[in-house]
Design a protein around this nucleic acid. Structure first.
Lengths: 260, 260
DNA sequence: TCTCAAGTATAACGTAACGTTAGGGTCAAG
DNA sequence: CTTGACCCTAACGTTACGTTATACTTGAGA
């Protein structure tokens, strides 16, 4: 009934995808011993050898040494079925470990991206100021919210980031130029409008298409410079910058966003 | 700003999880060269070395040779970010290949299980009869439906299979003993009832809790011995078995299942 | 200040799992 | 009976470290 087909080394080699040398080797170390009765010294393999070889190859792909494989195959109650169960288990473990690696790589990538975007945003501002600002923000928001902020940062393409930075720089410069003017000055309010629109744009990118910045949020933004040190950090843009910007923003909120 | 912390070999070893020897080796083959200015000959690593080492380890876990890793790390446009992208890609490929292996193992397992259950069911029946029966069934149902049948067979635990076989054998024997009796004979009908209940039990296991065998199905079962050869195969249980069983089943269906 | 265990270095041999010649039989087709 | 495609054994080469062996440094404690 069984065809009992036999295979030469090269046939097995092609069929299973291992080198002839490997078959020699496995014969040599008595891991897989073919029949050799044909008295010409040739190795002859049959179906059962092929199955065994497949088992070996799976374990090998999982980085077991040949000695380990030998004992795995010789293990108690090691019929083909329990072999397969064992292998499935090991394969699942391996898959898990790879999933972990993928995850770790992804975490590293988002960290890197966030760092890069942070660099784009604050690269032109003196380091010690950025650092001091960072610690103050951490105190204000708690470190978990900072984590979230960084995660958000990581979402952006660098191009978009550059554009935002450009607009933002322009606005800051314009603000700085108008220090001394009154808040209701049309030019100042025009700049402030631009600022509000930029904030809106950012909010949309971060929170989804139609998430506008509310008047409360904009007022809170204006007041976020709520202590002397924070205020001083803003002076980087110019003497009296913080007060000027805050005033303009509050005025804008009252006039255009119906703030109290 | 950068702490620029430095690490000794054993510190790196513990931190990253490689042997000191490995660090020596990587230094030797110029894959990862630490600073050694401290004029005592000691190796000193910093943050950037750690990152590089991590990259190496990921590639190593993916079975790249150190030479391959060297060129991967030196490849064009190989900043950390594109490294990570490359690695993620390779990791995904690897995960796919493992998924394939798992799949192949599972297929082998179900085949094996089906074969074993088949053996339980038909092990005591002469091989050539089973074979002939198999080919006739294949003609009747088409080879795809046979595949399905085997898949169903694979679902069962061997214990359940043994029990079913036992009951089935008993019923067949009882049927054989009553060959010659009329179909309406209460004993014959009692056996037939047992048979119908067994078929029902099997149907429930296969198709879910409350799937009863309909009268049409039972009639079809009775008539499945629809040619001379098939009929002869059934004679294995006794002279005239096929006709006797079919008659009893049809009678049962008419009486108890409202068959036409 | 000396001491000594713990850490570091180089150097060199060992190993696993084959790859790669080298040198020589076997077989089937023409 | 040749010839080309296979097959064999034997033995050295290779990769990526593990494992001694021998010797220098270092930092905490007697």
């Amino acid at each position: 009934m069984q065809k009992s087909k036999v295979y030469s080394v090269s046939q097995v080699s092609k069929l299973v995808g291992v080198s002839v040398r490997t078959l020699h080797h496995y014969d040599h170390i008595k891991l897989l011993r073919p029949a050799r009765k044909m008295d010409n010294g040739y190795r002859y393999y049959n179906q059962s050898h092929l199955i065994l070889l497949q088992q070996i190859l799976i374990y090998r792909a999982l980085d077991f040494t040949l000695e380990e494989i030998r004992s795995l195959l010789n293990a108690e109650s090691s019929d083909l079925f329990s072999q397969l169960e064992k292998q499935k288990q090991v394969l699942n473990e391996r898959q898990q470990s790879i999933a972990n690696m993928i995850n770790s790589v992804e975490v590293t990538m988002t960290n890197l991206k966030a760092k890069k975007n942070h660099e784009i945003l604050f690269g032109d501002i003196p380091k010690e100021k950025v650092e001091r600002w960072g610690t103050l923000e951490k105190e204000r928001l708690g470190s978990e919210n900072i984590e979230k902020k960084m995660a958000v940062l990581a979402q952006f393409d660098h191009e978009i980031m550059h554009k935002l930075k450009e607009e933002s720089t322009e606005i800051s410069d314009d603000f700085a130029k108008t220090i001394g003017q009154t808040f209701d000055n049309p030019i100042v309010q025009e700049i402030t409008a631009k600022h509000y629109q930029l904030m809106n744009k950012i909010s949309c990118v971060v929170h989804g298409e139609n998430s506008q910045v509310s008047s409360e949020q904009y007022v809170a933004m204006a007041n976020s410079v709520d202590n002397k040190e924070m205020e001083e950090l803003c002076e980087f843009y110019g003497q009296g910058y913080a007060e000027h910007a805050r005033g303009a923003m509050l005025y804008y909120a009252k006039k255009n966003l119906n703030a109290k």
